[in-house]
Write a protein that binds this DNA or RNA. Structure first.
Lengths: 153, 153
DNA sequence: CCTTGTTAGTTACAAAATCAACTATTACGA
DNA sequence: TCGTAATAGTTGATTTTGTAACTAACAAGG
């Protein structure tokens, strides 16, 4: 244990990331939980559909890196809440196009505006340069692909 | 959904943090899982004891912000793996002092050196300034207290 | 001392995540 | 066109977590 004396848990990036993630998630999680009874995966699926338009479960998987079983259950839960609808594709009946209902769009509008305000509040404690660096580093580690296209349809 | 068109999921800090956290955890998680059959909480408890010396479950709770039930279960699991031992305090029998066994220390040495190498690898993709900023921002959001004392005992 | 309150830690039960196996549909190659 | 493989998605069994209720030990006031 001697040579590790200089290594503190708060110096370990995965730990810091995890702690920051959990702290910042809590406050926002309360919103979609309390207001819509949503789970985290449900919120994410809702967000993907609201932000990027209709897509299949598979596409949400690829973009979000959430496992397909979680997606499957979240989709069903959102459907039961009448927030999304499924439309079987005629050309390949393995696919189902998912899209938000009116109620789903309303929930998305509501939650995404809360998200934006919360993000602004978090960012406010840092300078623009710090924010820029922070997000760049996080994106590098997260391997986020979500923005890398134009399929906003 | 119109006014949210400018708000991308990859701009949302809690999301980015969560994604970066999960990505970076995976690789390291594989180590303590594969080599010692440990869960994340077990690794953290091990780390706290290895790094900061013997302490009670309560102290680990306070430092790590992990819930006491998780600590309780992790402690039992580590004990069953013969990585830690409990010693009831004579003056207050509600407390138990936890400390690592020889095998626990060995596991800590092994894993913490892997952790340090992995951290170095992650950091290597950024400049020193970026790293400094990244860690400062993360610590601000994580409200990490772990380093704020001298009780290395 | 005996009630009331507090702290440390555990346990029980419900909710959720994970992993593997499964169905249904399409694609491809001999 | 028949058999094999691949893809999309679901379901079930097992783990893991979270919430809340619980036990045990101490503290403090009457």
């Amino acid at each position: 244990m001697q040579d590790a004396a200089s290594f503190d848990l708060s110096d370990f990036l995965p730990y810091l990331l995890n702690r920051a993630s959990e702290e910042t998630s809590l406050e926002f999680q309360a919103e979609y939980k309390k207001r819509y009874g949503m789970l985290r995966t449900e919120w994410r699926v809702l967000f993907h559909l609201g932000r990027y338009g209709e897509m299949t479960a598979r596409e949400i998987c690829d973009r979000s890196r959430i496992h397909k079983t979680k997606i499957s259950r979240a989709v069903r839960a959102l459907q039961e809440k009448r927030f999304l609808q499924r439309l079987e594709c005629a050309d390949d009946r393995r696919h189902e196009m998912l899209s938000l209902t009116k109620a789903g769009c309303a929930a998305y509008d509501d939650l995404s505006s809360i998200a934006r305000r919360y993000d602004a509040k978090l960012s406010a404690q840092f300078t623009p340069e710090e924010n820029e660096t922070l997000r760049r580093c996080l994106q590098a580690m997260a391997r986020v692909h979500a923005g890398g296209d134009g399929s906003v349809g």
